[in-house]
């Protein structure tokens, strides 16, 4: 009995020492080395790809934002992002988790479709899928080129700009698939809106 106890405690201490040594290697050295290299070689990316406007930090090119007016409604002067289950709160990422046949989601999709169509003055049939569905992260920085083009005329009207100029802006903002076949074509909403601010100076 005593021998068993002694063996067990010896084994436990060996296990504890193993955990501590390996924690030092994988939990302290490894993240510090990667952080060191990251901060040295890629400081912009490592710190969140922060984007500036007139020297002021206005967001991250990777994280979506709301573009609302003072009352919290979508501002017609800006390109609008996808719906978000997290309301673009960067400290509360997440999805709706509603099922593909959920009555609640069906109702939401119909509401969003009607709202987007009315807001942009287009028929409901023209509203693309990304405009009526919430992303996985709740922070999707992108919209589809179709959704961006659909918004161009409305933005131009709200800002009293030339429609063709805004449409060109959108076309320039479209990014094709990575390497031609990875992912989907997309438009970064923050970048597009910053280009828009530049145009409307």
């Amino acid at each position: 009995m005593n021998a068993t106890l002694r063996n067990t405690s010896r084994l436990t201490f060996a296990a504890l020492r193993a955990l501590l040594v390996l924690s030092l290697i994988t939990g302290v050295l490894y993240p510090l080395v990667v952080t060191g290299v990251a901060q040295g070689a890629f400081p912009d990316q490592a710190n969140g790809s922060v984007v500036e406007l007139d020297g002021r930090e206005v967001g991250s090119s990777l994280v979506g934002q709301t573009w609302n007016d003072e009352d919290g409604n979508p501002d017609p002067r800006w390109f609008q992002p996808r719906p978000s289950a997290a309301d673009y709160d960067a400290e509360a990422s997440g999805a709706s988790n509603l099922a593909a046949d959920s009555p609640e989601l069906l109702e939401l999709v119909r509401e969003r479709r009607a709202r987007v169509a009315a807001f942009n003055g287009v028929p409901e049939s023209e509203v693309p899928v990304d405009a009526v569905t919430a992303s996985g992260s709740g922070l999707d920085p992108h919209i589809s080129p179709r959704y961006a083009r659909l918004q161009a005329d409305r933005v131009a009207r709200a800002r009293d700009l030339d429609g063709a100029a805004v449409r060109t802006l959108v076309d320039d903002a479209v990014r094709s698939r990575v390497a031609g076949f990875l992912g989907e074509p997309r438009v970064n909403v923050l970048q597009l809106n910053l280009d828009l601010a530049e145009l409307d100076r």
Binding site: L98, A100, L105, L108, G136, L182, E184, R186
Partner: peptide, 23 residues
């Protein structure tokens, strides 16, 4: 398939634009 996905015109609920349905 699925009523809500059909109404939306795609299975993009809970998915990111940069990955799409395939990714």
């Amino acid at each position: 398939p699925g009523a809500a996905a059909q109404a939306a015109g795609g299975a993009m609920e809970g998915k990111e634009v940069r990955f799409g349905e395939g990714g």
